[in-house]
């Protein structure tokens, strides 16, 4: 589903590479934790998958397509197959829960009948039925992150990318979010999650890829967070 082949990325104006010779293959339906200290290259890894940046060297294949060869006008099409969740939720404050989720479908031109049917379904899936008309401000952090996950998942993407989705949440709430991501993963969606949360990684026992200074230093299935850095 996602394959990095000798990928290096150096940002403009910087001498140090953010990623260096990374080779990773993530299969369809996998759940992968991306761990490492701040600045180890986790965010760069995710941004490259989203094609927010180009690689400096090497190739990234997403769903069989070489991102370097993708014409820029096809990038939006590619991104529709990837859902994204962030630490800071990124909800629109003046839109209700349902509107926030519907927005993702509206802006890619889905018909209204489809939106009306899909949005309640996905809100039920993430456990927010009954809160459709709330504004983000009126929700707890965990609930806001559920809205963000609903928005990321409403178009049934093949890949879900989560950048520290539990970073702003307390441990109890985080467990709920992880259960939700696990449920989404069971529908066949590939999940790649960057995290600092030791207990979550240790509990879930999924594949762990550890980055350090832009290198992959560990890649094990059913791994734990590892040594404290």
């Amino acid at each position: 589903m996602i394959r990095f082949e000798n990928v290096s990325k150096t940002y403009e104006g910087q001498s140090k590479a953010a990623l260096l010779n990374v080779n990773v293959e993530i299969e369809k339906g996998e759940f992968v934790f991306l761990v490492g200290t701040s600045g180890s290259g986790k965010s760069t890894f995710l941004r490259l998958v989203l094609r927010e940046h180009r690689t400096s060297k090497g190739h990234i294949m997403v769903a069989g397509k070489d991102l370097n060869r993708l014409a820029s006008w096809r990038i939006p099409q590619m991104r529709r197959q990837i859902g994204t969740v962030f630490q800071d939720f990124r909800l629109l404050p003046n839109k209700t829960v349902a509107e926030n989720v519907a927005f993702a479908l509206q802006v890619i031109g889905k018909p209204r009948s489809h939106i009306r049917k899909t949005v309640p379904e996905v809100l039920e899936l993430v456990g927010l039925d009954g809160k459709e008309d709330r504004l983000p401000d009126e929700l707890s952090g965990g609930e806001q992150q559920r809205v963000a996950i609903a928005r990321a998942f409403v178009n049934r993407p093949m890949i879900l990318i989560a950048d520290e989705p539990t970073g702003n949440l307390d441990p109890g709430t985080s467990v709920g979010i992880m259960k939700l991501l696990d449920r989404i993963n069971r529908t066949g969606t590939t999940v790649v999650m960057a995290t600092h949360d030791v207990s979550i990684v240790d509990q879930m026992r999924k594949r762990v890829i550890e980055l350090e200074n832009g290198h992959v230093v560990r890649d094990e299935s059913r791994g734990v967070y590892g040594y404290q850095h």
Binding site: M78, R90, A104, V107
Partner: peptide
């Protein structure tokens, strides 16, 4: 914000 989300979910240019 809106534009960021639009790009993220794949709205066309």
């Amino acid at each position: 914000r809106e534009i960021g989300i639009m790009r993220l979910v794949g709205a066309s240019n």
